[in-house]
Simulated scan of single mutants.
Amino acid sequence: MQRASPFLLGLALLLLASAEPAAAQAPRSRFMRPGTRVGEIVDYELSYAHAPGLEVIFPDSTAEFKPFEYVGKTYYPTRTRRGQSLDRTVYHLRTFALDSVQRLSLPVTLLQGNDTVTVPSTAASVRLQRTAPAPGPEAPVLRQNTTALPVATQFNYPYWLAGTGLLALVAGGFFIGFRRTLRLRYQRYRLRKNHAYFLAQYARHIERFTLSRSLTNMERAITLWKNYLTGLEDNTINSLTTREIVAHYENDHDVNTALRITDRVIYGNQFTEEEAETDMAFILLRDFAQRRYDLVSARPRA
């Protein structure tokens, strides 16, 4: 048999030496504890020892973790010692599967130029610890209880706020729709109230004048009459003379007669022997104020 050359033998030994560490470079994975419970977080460690110049990518949150669910991860920086680098990441997982033993193997991606190589890790397993008691030969007897328990009453703020808003909306719409009518009603109410007040005060001044025959009470009655007509018709007759007032009301017979009688009494101090003439002057002024009130209250207002 022909013997192999020393060159070919050395090359074969070099290839064997380089292939042996490559087989030992598989990523390793393990669970940090042997058992877990449903919904409980368990740590899964993935580590990979490789050459320092190798580009390694570990799985992120989008990887396939079934039957586990991804919760988070803790990344550790690469450590290089004696010509070998170590990457390590701990994933925080939880499971809701009911299998007694659950396994997981996450792959590691290697970048080689424009290509990528996926290297699977060693499989790790964890045992599910059951907390429910084992079922017996017979199902437990269930006791029925339909008694209603007292519940504390709570204030329903959303419904009250919605009701208040709806009521405000209806009130606003009603006011906008009937604004003119409401304003007219209010104006007429004020007219009636002011007229009733005037009649009461006017009658009181006349009564005091009748009892005392005091010119002060007569002056007060005439001043009240002028001020009432000023506010009723929005004019300035309270600052006018008797002649100007008569002219303002177009020589009205009642106004002319009544004011001339009161002027003769007040300024001339001429009391007539007949009290009927003075009483007639008060009645004429009161009736004239009543007619002006009826005219203004019947007039449409804006």
Rank of each mutant, 00 (worst) to 15 (best):
G163Q: 13
P150E: 01
L142M: 07
R192C: 11
Y189I: 05
Q187W: 00
A148N: 11
N145E: 04
L166M: 06
F198Y: 08
L161N: 08
P150T: 01
R130T: 09
Y186M: 10
V141Q: 13
L184S: 09
T181W: 12
N145Q: 14
P135N: 02
L199V: 02
F175W: 14
L191H: 00
P137D: 15
L182P: 02
A200L: 10
R185H: 11
T122R: 04
V141Y: 09
G177V: 09
Y189C: 08
L149H: 01
L184K: 06
Q129N: 14
F174W: 13
P140F: 07
P135M: 03
A132F: 13
T164E: 14
P150L: 02
Q144L: 15
P158G: 00
L184M: 11
R183I: 15
F175D: 08
Q129F: 11
G136D: 12
V170K: 01
A152N: 06
L166W: 08
I176R: 08
W160C: 09
T122C: 03
P135K: 07
Y157N: 11
R183E: 15
N194V: 04
R183K: 13
A148Q: 03
R179V: 00
A139N: 07
P135F: 06
F178M: 08
Y189F: 14
T122M: 08
F155A: 00
A168F: 04
R143M: 15
S125Q: 04
F178L: 10
L169I: 11
T146Q: 13
F175Q: 06
Y157S: 12
Q201K: 10
A148H: 04
A171L: 15
L128H: 01
L161R: 05
F198I: 00
A196W: 09
R188F: 01
V126R: 00
F174S: 10
P133D: 05
Q187K: 03
P140A: 03
F198A: 00
P150Q: 02
R130F: 09
A196G: 12
F175P: 01
F198N: 01
A171N: 10
L182I: 08
G163E: 10
V141F: 12
A139F: 08
R180N: 08
P137A: 15
K193M: 10
A148C: 03
V141P: 09
Q187F: 03
V170H: 12
L184D: 08
Y197M: 13
E138I: 14
L167Y: 04
A124K: 00
T131L: 10
A171C: 12
R188C: 01
T153K: 04
Y186D: 10
L161C: 05
A200T: 07
A148P: 09
A171G: 10
A123V: 14
L191Q: 01
I176S: 06
A171E: 07
V170P: 07
A196S: 11
F178G: 07
A196L: 11
T146N: 14
L166K: 03
A200C: 06
K193C: 01
T181V: 13
Q187Y: 01
L199M: 06
A171Q: 09
H195M: 04
V126D: 00
R180V: 06
Y159F: 09
Q201W: 07
